[in-house]
Each structure stands twice: as C-alpha cells, then as structure tokens.
Design a protein around this nucleic acid. Structure first.
Length: 272
DNA sequence: AGCGGAACCTGTCGGC
DNA sequence: TGCCGACAGGTTCCGC
C-alpha cells in the first residue's frame, strides 16, 4: 500500500475520522510481529486515551494521544487502517481492533504482517523516527543538501533516494518515476550527479509526490478497489512495471534491472 | 562506508 | 490441474 502519498492520504482520512474519539479497549488477533514490545503493556497504554491528532513523518503514521503519548505505526507493504461500524467477527487479515468511544472500530489489517505498531510516551524515544532524513517537501531541501554529504560517494543514485536516512519517504515505485522525469540513469554514482541535476531531482520528487497525493485513492492506496486497475494510477506511471514497453518520450523499450534486490525501470535512451 | 543477502510473512502469477 | 519459483509498494540486521 504505502509510499508517502498513500500514507499522507490515510493520515488525512484518519485525522478527520478519529480525532476526539477515545480508545475504550484494544483487541489483538495476531501480534507477532506487528505490535512491538510487550503486548499487554501496549493494550493498557492505549486503552483510556483519546486520539488528538494524526500526522505523518516519512511513511510513519503518528497518532497523537491525550493526555499523553503516541502510537507510531508503519503499514509496510500491505497494512491498512479502516474505520467502520462494529463487526461481529474479525475478517481474515484483521490484526488489531481499536474499540472507539463512539462505538466504532478502527481496524489495523495486514496480510503480510510486516506492519508495526508501537507506543511511545515521547516521540524522541522512537529510534526509527530519530534516524530519518529530510522530508521531500522540506523548505531547506536543496541541491547542496545532497552534494555536501555525497561528494565522493560511489553509491548509485537510486540507492540514495531510497535511503530513508538521507531523504525520508520515497519508495521503489516513485524513485523510478522521479529519475525518469529527471532524465538521470538510476545507476549513476551519487558523487557524480551535478548540482543542476540534484535540483532537477528535487523538483521532480516534489512534482511526482504532489501529483500522487492529488490522485490519492485512485492510485495504489486501496486494495479493496484493486479491480480498478485501469484507473488513474496506470496513466500516472510512465516507467514503473513497463518492462519492454516503449518509452513515452522516445519509444525505446523501457528496461528492467535489479538494484538492491528491487526492480528498477528506466529508459536507457532518455536517462543518462 | 556501503554493499549484497537474508529475514520478517502471505499471496499471486507465470511457466513448465 | 498442480507444483515451483519469482515476485510484491518496506525496513532491518548481519557479515564481508
């Protein structure tokens, strides 16, 4: 489900739905490995608190609780949050139920159980959050941010853009799209990317993510609507999953390669 | 430092 | 039809 635009969408929807609602109790149908740390402590820490706000940091969801504390969540590949009227029985991949004071249910559903839920009294206590790099829409993100730390780096530029410690929130799909629009070959060494090229990468990062956020819901954000495969998302992607298909700009076949055990798609003609 | 590989889990799809 | 391997949008850990 999630790259940053999908997380942003979910965060906004959840904020509208649950802000002000309280948690009366928490049912866990399968904790391993979703709920981090002691399960009973987690249930106890959440029960009785109220959702005050929901925000995003990179691909993490942060549930602000009152009178104190935070639930930090990550949906990984297949996690989902659903707010619904009460159900009699958990559905197959429901992992956690949050019973809300309003009588509704917030469900964390996750086929693959890669997702994570953690409670923290203070956000600084989350090591994962502390390690994250700059947000793609941060005001102080500029070419020098990359150049200053990558002058002599031989790492491939794709690896840099996926590195959450450097820039936090980009995922495999959008990195292919960003580098295509930037006309940069994903295998280029980061240290050899010129300042003007970094500026292009930043510009197109914000453009691609912005478009995806605007098109939320019809992108990949909802497996329940996955039958709608010919929706806007397919039109939106220019290279991802387009192996052997003609480049929309020059007609040369898009190439699929593997970098860091992940698929990369690019145009060998346009991207230098 | 930074790479590759494996791991966490389950489902789906294509080839034989 | 049935089995088997490859693959899936993320992150972390380990060894070299």
């Amino acid at each position: 489900m999630p790259e940053l635009p999908e997380v942003e969408t979910v965060v906004c929807e959840l904020r509208d739905e649950i802000s002000g609602d309280s948690i009366s109790s928490v049912d866990v149908f399968r904790s391993n490995p979703i709920v981090q740390g002691d399960l009973e402590a987690f249930q106890q820490q959440l029960s009785g608190r109220t959702f005050h706000d929901v925000t995003r940091r990179a691909k993490y969801l942060i549930f602000h609780l009152q009178p104190s504390g935070y639930m930090v969540a990550h949906m990984r590949m297949t996690g989902k949050f659903i707010v619904t009227e009460p159900l009699a029985e958990p559905e197959k991949y429901n992992r956690v139920w949050f019973h809300l004071g309003s009588g509704r249910l917030m469900i964390f559903d996750d086929v693959r159980c890669f997702g994570t839920l953690e409670f923290y009294e203070k956000l600084d206590d989350s090591k994962a959050l502390c390690k994250l790099g700059i947000e793609p829409f941060a005001d102080d993100l500029n070419a020098n941010y990359f150049i200053s730390q990558l002058v002599s780096s031989t790492r491939e530029v794709k690896s840099i853009l996926l590195d959450q410690k450097i820039i936090a929130g980009l995922g495999n799909i959008y990195v292919s799209e960003i580098l295509f629009r930037s006309k940069i070959n994903p295998r280029r060494s980061a240290g050899k990317i010129r300042k003007t090229e970094w500026s292009e990468i930043i510009k197109f990062t914000q453009e691609v993510l912005g478009e995806a956020i605007e098109n939320n819901g019809t992108t990949i954000s909802d497996f329940r609507r996955v039958d709608d495969k010919t929706g806007k998302f397919q039109q939106f992607l220019k290279v991802y999953d387009k192996n052997e298909q003609p480049c929309p700009d020059c007609g040369v076949p898009i190439q699929r390669i593997v970098q860091q055990q992940r698929s990369t798609f690019f145009c060998p003609e346009c991207q230098r």
